[in-house]
Computed example of a mutant assay.
Amino acid sequence: MTSPTRPTTGAIWMVLASIASVQVGAAVAKNLFGVVPPVTMAWLRLAAAAVALLLLSAFARVRTRRDARRHQELSAAPLSARSWPAGLAYAACLVGMNVSIYEAFARLPLGLAVTLEFLGPLGLAVLGSRRALDVMWALLALAGVALLGFTPTGLDPLGVFFAILAGALWAGYIVTAARAGRTWPGMDALTLACTIGAVVLAVPALHQGGAEIWRADVLLAGAGVGLLSSVIPHSLEMAALKSIPPRVFGILMSIEPAAAALAALVLLGERLSPTDLVAMGCVIVASIGATRSA
């Protein structure tokens, strides 16, 4: 049996595959912003993820019913009174985070948007610590953000706002996911969140998307983004966390900005200036340092 304190090579590769999947999905989504707006793309992602997760959930329940004893055990443990508030808070953060980061992607290079978004979980890690060293990591991250102000092409202020908002919602997502995970079994909380997002965003998404939303390539890309950015990475992360310590998981996740920049370079042709790369490096190093310290 694998020790939970010694990460396996397989678990590490699962996390890396999860990161790659998310960023490839982000690049595919951004490539369609000229056809449909970010809100519509976020809706397609959540709707596709909701359908996939509901099908997986139904399949799991069918298998569970084959074992009558196991079925009785599950039936004897209904959701508690705290389940719905925790699940709804988790859904609000997840949906808001998706819409905000897509609005940022539409206005900023992918790598820089993810770098700014990363300030959310980094800030959460620093706030949860009382070590003086973590103040240094926070200052390093802020120095990186300050460097972005010197980027040659300048940054869209609204894009910066949406990226930082996505980061704040990401921090909220981390907190609410822990609470929802204690009261919702399996991936039910994620299924609930994606379903709520698909319902809530349907009207604005359909209104803004117009007739273009029903194009075959748009629907296919939306389904792909839902799988790449939600279903596949969440499944891989859940499997990896069974044999990898949260600290190591956090350190691996710190390479997200670099992965986003690489995906944008390969799939979208987005190039970052040396200043942008240094700023991104500051945030990545600060994230790794804060995670190791925690």
Rank of each mutant, 00 (worst) to 15 (best):
L252Q: 01
L122D: 05
D276I: 02
L192K: 02
V39P: 01
D156H: 12
S80W: 01
P78W: 10
V278F: 02
L122H: 06
V135C: 15
G289C: 04
W84A: 14
V278D: 04
L228T: 05
R69D: 15
A205C: 00
Y90W: 01
R107I: 01
V199G: 05
A259S: 07
W184F: 15
L268R: 12
H234C: 12
V203Y: 15
I101Y: 09
R70N: 09
S229P: 02
V266L: 11
L56E: 10
W43R: 03
W13A: 14
P204Y: 13
L148C: 03
A91R: 15
G172P: 08
F59D: 11
F59K: 15
P274G: 00
E237M: 12
A202R: 10
W13D: 07
K242H: 14
S293Q: 12
I213M: 00
S75M: 10
M14L: 14
W214N: 07
S129T: 05
R107M: 00
I244E: 04
L116R: 05
M97E: 12
W137R: 10
A89N: 04
A294N: 12
A290S: 02
A193Q: 01
G281E: 04
W184Q: 14
L277M: 02
R292P: 02
L158C: 06
R292T: 03
A68Q: 14
